[in-house]
């Protein structure tokens, strides 16, 4: 449904300077951001229908996170069996790279436990294979933009590195709701993945 103008508007909103393609370590170091390990976010949710999502999860699993695969995008069982009991005990952070509905329901279920979405980035998988990224909310927006400016198919790895560095801080400002229930207009043939961190705030 999107025409060329709408597509360009979307792409421009995502634009990151081309010169930003430097290593995440260097960028983080320059910004005084210390590396953290993935155990800061113990649960990671991936959509088994997307290779990008599986790659993202595999990287974070190497850092110690428990990865939960959604076979068909439905997060009901994960919430019932794992997240609801965990959140009743303590509001532990959860990250994901999924389609939008999983974020939509987990965000709202998290509110009851004092959790908010502190990282929300949309990744539009274009029909021709490349991805366009749009940082809507991040613990460090500049670092997120840096990470996702890396060209090529390795963006899930850069995203995983970014998430692994993300140490949610309860003293940070408490964000309101995302618009995850309302989808952006996508170019023809494109699909939307969403990366997110739900954490105490």
């Amino acid at each position: 449904m999107a025409d060329r103008r709408e597509f360009l508007q979307y792409a421009m909103a995502s634009a990151v300077p081309l010169g930003a393609a430097v290593s995440l370590d260097a960028a983080a170091s320059a910004r005084g951001v210390a590396p953290t390990n993935a155990s800061a976010i113990p649960h990671v949710v991936v959509d088994a229908r997307h290779g990008e999502s599986l790659a993202f999860g595999a990287d974070l699993a190497r850092g110690g996170a428990t990865v939960h695969r959604l076979a068909d995008g439905d997060a009901t069982d994960l919430w019932q069996s794992t997240l609801a009991p965990a959140w009743r005990s303590a509001p532990v952070p959860v990250a994901g790279l999924t389609r939008a509905p999983a974020l939509f329901i987990l965000e709202q279920l998290g509110w009851m436990h004092g959790l908010r979405v502190v990282h929300h980035v949309e990744h539009v998988l274009m029909r021709e294979g490349r991805a366009v990224h749009r940082v809507l909310r991040a613990l460090d927006s500049a670092l997120a933009s840096h990470a996702l400016a890396q060209p090529g198919p390795a963006w899930p790895a850069h995203l995983a590195a970014l998430v692994a560095r993300s140490a949610p801080d309860e003293s940070a400002s408490r964000p309101g709701p995302t618009a995850a229930g309302l989808l952006p207009t996508l170019p023809p043939g494109a699909q939307l993945l969403t990366s997110w961190i739900i954490a105490p705030a």
């Binding site: 439905d74 009901t76 919430w79 389609r99 939008a100 329901i105 229930g181 699909q191």
Partner: peptide
């Protein structure tokens, strides 16, 4: 009870992603 409708709602062959809102 179930929440799978959010992952399925509006999904068609022509539009594999659910409509959302």
């Amino acid at each position: 009870p179930d929440l799978s409708t959010f992952a399925m709602l509006g999904r068609t062959q022509a539009s594999p992603d659910p409509a959302g809102g």
